[in-house]
Nucleic acid binder design. Structure first.
Lengths: 135, 135
DNA sequence: CTAGTTGCAAAGAGTTTGCATGGCG
DNA sequence: CGCCATGCAAACTCTTTGCAACTAG
């Protein structure tokens, strides 16, 4: 059994930040500096510890963009069924697109059937450039 | 114009390591420890500097696995057209598979045509579990 | 000889851990 | 009150940078 999850002010603030930024990814540093600039103080370690838990609990997703050294975290919106489709991440502007498309959904099946590989959609992100940034 | 590329013993050793491990990825630490355990000595900085150059020159690929903090580097085999297809990476055993399949090659075109997104195959790795590890 | 290269050590950047204090339930 | 969570600082890991010595061409 997992330990009790006490409600604390810090956790509330962090989770709210993700809920208010469903369309963006946040880095640990951004979270720390945002909180510390808003009449509150939070330790870096606390942020990392809670981020880890949120990732384990499937509340947020953790990425590593190739050109960034720091990890990025983004809310996994249950309403958008993010576990069931692929994601596209623009390496220029950072936009995350949900690739909810029947054609793409067939890809996972194809890879499993033809290549014996089970793709984990919750981990996989396709990198590239979105319409605007490609220009 | 770019500076002349002097041939050195260090560069030769590193490049050979990639050529002898086309099917695997190597980390900077692995390269350093391998070389230093073989009657030769090389500085960490030298390894990183040459890796950067190999990446810039398109000789090797650099990527980050979700659960690793260190970067992985792998030779881009011209014969396998690694620039043009996707890669599958098993999150259990670390095996990297080349997904060279006409069906899959259509994916990039589809995403561009239907979703206006240009996928960068050299950056994208699909994560999941291979046949053996799925059991 | 000149300019690219190397090795070492120090500096950075990001993340994790140890530990005493603090707060939820 | 017991146990989890927090903050701070130190420790760590990986990578980059500064610089003097070295070397390929």
């Amino acid at each position: 059994m997992r330990p009790t999850d006490y409600k604390t002010k810090q956790k509330e603030i962090i989770l709210n930040m993700f809920l208010e930024n469903k369309d963006k990814h946040l880095t640990a540093a951004e979270i720390v500096s945002y909180i510390n600039s808003n009449n509150y103080n939070i330790g870096t370690a606390t942020v990392y510890r809670y981020l880890d838990r949120l990732v384990s609990n499937g509340i947020i997703r953790k990425y590593f963009l190739d050109d960034k050294s720091s990890a990025c975290y983004q809310y996994i919106d249950p309403e958008k069924k993010c576990r069931e489709h692929f994601h596209l991440k623009c390496i220029e502007c950072g936009e995350l697109m949900h690739l909810d498309c029947s054609y793409m959904q067939a890809i996972g099946d194809h890879i499993l059937a033809e290549h014996g590989f089970t793709v984990d959609n919750s981990r996989t992100v396709l990198y590239g450039r979105c319409k605007n940034c490609e220009k």
